[in-house]
Amino acid sequence: MTTILKASDLGISFGGLKAVSGFNLTLETNDLVGLIGPNGAGKTTVFNLLTGVYQPTEGAIELEGHSIMGKTPHHLVKLGIARTFQNIRLFKEITVLDNVKIAFDHQMKTSLLSSMFRLPGFWKEEKSIETKAIELLKVFNLEKYRYYSAGNLPYGQQRKLEIARALATDPKVLLLDEPAAGMNHTETHELMDTIRFIRDRFNIAILLIEHDMQLVTGICEKITVLDYGKIIAHGLPQEVINNPNVIRVYLGDDD
């Protein structure tokens, strides 16, 4: 087990409001960690900090031992951090296959010149990307939709495609923002299997935000609970859901 992503004392303020403070997290290879908390607890803010969309005002983030502070999101993707979104953000007008290819493309080695003038190296890489993209779609059972515009897929398939697209960037860490949002019971179960499967197949660390407690306790090995931007509990699923602080946050005080 090697540490991949490490956030220490991470915090961000918007004006006077501390959205997140003192956030600590360590992700190792093959970890599957859940990040839960009531609405507005700062879960998505944590994702935005880890992916470089927001710059933290305090603390540090390290990826494989190197600081990644101040790096732009597209740079972080190249270093191995990928994510999906709470509200699906596929390129809806572009085909399913191209959605995945775009993500693969920008890991390519070929230069601007060779892709503009279509040098031999370009064709070779283009071919291998096509193959890789289709393989990835097969993992998610999406290859039959490959020429559909992404926006025309059924909702559940769009969620899967978003995960496939994130995986195409060849991540070391995958952040899933409410992957089961809007899914029914069966779809959620299917998704749980998929998440477990990709963790094992691609050997990556996964951090997921989720409201569906069944999903979180069902697949996460560790859970971190946020409330008002602070960690109030961290540990094994059973410990966390029996933690009085967590119960209070979710169900309110007894009195």
Partner: peptide, 20 residues
């Protein structure tokens, strides 16, 4: 691929950025 990147950025530049 650069043309596709242009289409991706025009649809959603936040998501495009997170695709590298």
């Amino acid at each position: 691929r650069l043309g596709k990147a242009m289409r991706a950025v025009s649809e959603d530049y936040g998501a495009a950025q997170l695709m590298g």
